[in-house]
Computed example of a mutant assay.
Amino acid sequence: MTLIFGHRGAAGTFPENTMPSFQEAARLGADGIELDVQMTKDGTVVVIHDETVDRTTNGSGAVLDYTYDELSKLDASHTFSEKTGFCTIPTLEEVLHWLSKTELLINIEFKNNKQKYRGLEEEVITLVRKYGLESRTVFSSFSQTSIMKCRELAPDIETALLYKFGVRIPWLYAKRLGVSAIHPNYKYIAAPVIWLTLLNNIAVRPYTVNDEESLRKLGKLGISAVITDYPDRAVRILRENR
């Protein structure tokens, strides 16, 4: 069965990485959500994709230069303000508290390949454990160092290799790193590579799969999950195959 992860919630129709977006993904029938974490000046783990707030809020500047109190005053409704009204940048704890009352899975991406956040992995692991979500969590990052640190600190929580392209034999690389899944850009992974990776007991969860043709094709290949901005579209197409 191919699972469906809402990319930043339901980012195609709601403001990405906000509570309304995550709640919409759940309402649409997604199996899980994907989100990004960074850290404020005062050490709060927050859910936002970019290293700056410029693109998705009415503010400007680096996330790391804000305290959480300052960050919480920004409007993250982005281009969906008419639909949702004012939206805050949520803390990871806020999302996990809500998610713990559901059956959703969660893929937490560490956004520390450009900006190094000291202690980010430790804080995230502490929060995941606080809400007892170890078995429902996947950690991913473009930073191999970050994933290795997660494996060292929390070997019981699943880790995944996140990459765009350039990994020719991903199942071998995943095994070498000790991760149990790959999260490749769907445009750069061919069917034979998907099959061989799955045969080697490494889960395959491509991102960000939005068009119907790709969803249908990948679903027929039996991939482990898709990460998509449009959970409603994925639910409709992939559950036809189920």
Rank of each mutant, 00 (worst) to 15 (best):
161 L>A: 12
193 V>L: 06
211 D>S: 11
236 R>M: 10
160 A>Y: 05
164 K>H: 11
192 P>M: 09
174 A>F: 04
211 D>F: 06
177 L>Q: 11
221 L>Y: 10
233 R>W: 05
174 A>L: 08
168 R>C: 12
198 L>F: 11
186 Y>D: 01
191 A>Q: 13
229 D>I: 05
160 A>C: 13
198 L>T: 05
193 V>H: 02
215 L>K: 04
191 A>W: 13
204 V>Q: 11
211 D>K: 12
163 Y>A: 11
211 D>E: 15
234 A>L: 10
221 L>M: 14
218 L>D: 05
231 P>A: 07
176 R>M: 13
235 V>Y: 11
185 N>F: 09
219 G>Q: 09
223 I>H: 04
202 I>G: 02
166 G>H: 04
197 T>I: 00
221 L>R: 10
177 L>H: 00
203 A>Y: 04
218 L>W: 11
212 E>K: 15
208 T>R: 13
208 T>N: 12
173 Y>R: 10
175 K>E: 10
162 L>I: 10
176 R>E: 13
180 S>P: 07
208 T>L: 01
227 I>P: 03
185 N>V: 03
192 P>F: 06
194 I>N: 09
162 L>G: 02
209 V>G: 04
200 N>F: 10
181 A>C: 14
191 A>K: 15
187 K>C: 07
187 K>T: 06
192 P>L: 09
231 P>L: 01
211 D>A: 07
197 T>A: 06
168 R>P: 03
226 V>G: 08
202 I>P: 08
160 A>H: 05
225 A>W: 06
236 R>F: 02
225 A>R: 07
226 V>Y: 08
234 A>T: 03
183 H>A: 03
218 L>P: 03
197 T>G: 00
184 P>H: 02
232 D>H: 04
206 P>L: 04
179 V>K: 05
169 I>P: 04
209 V>Y: 06
229 D>G: 00
219 G>E: 12
165 F>E: 05
221 L>S: 07
206 P>E: 06
230 Y>E: 04
200 N>D: 07
165 F>M: 13
182 I>S: 03
225 A>K: 13
226 V>P: 11
200 N>R: 14
231 P>D: 09
195 W>R: 15
194 I>F: 02
175 K>P: 13
180 S>A: 15
199 L>H: 09
220 K>W: 03
164 K>D: 02
177 L>K: 05
203 A>F: 03
179 V>I: 06
161 L>H: 13
233 R>K: 15
231 P>R: 01
220 K>D: 04
174 A>W: 03
189 I>N: 06
232 D>M: 08
186 Y>G: 08
185 N>C: 12
189 I>H: 13
198 L>V: 04
170 P>Q: 03
189 I>Q: 07
212 E>R: 14
189 I>D: 01
163 Y>D: 01
173 Y>E: 14
176 R>Q: 06
172 L>F: 06
187 K>M: 13
232 D>C: 00
208 T>P: 01
201 N>M: 14
205 R>E: 10
177 L>G: 12
207 Y>V: 09
169 I>R: 11
165 F>C: 08
183 H>Q: 11
179 V>Y: 08
233 R>M: 08
222 G>F: 12
196 L>Y: 10
219 G>S: 08
202 I>Y: 14
199 L>I: 08
218 L>Y: 10
174 A>Y: 07
199 L>F: 11
167 V>F: 00
188 Y>M: 07
165 F>V: 08
234 A>F: 05
176 R>T: 08
171 W>D: 00
189 I>R: 01
175 K>H: 08
228 T>C: 02
213 E>C: 00
182 I>H: 02
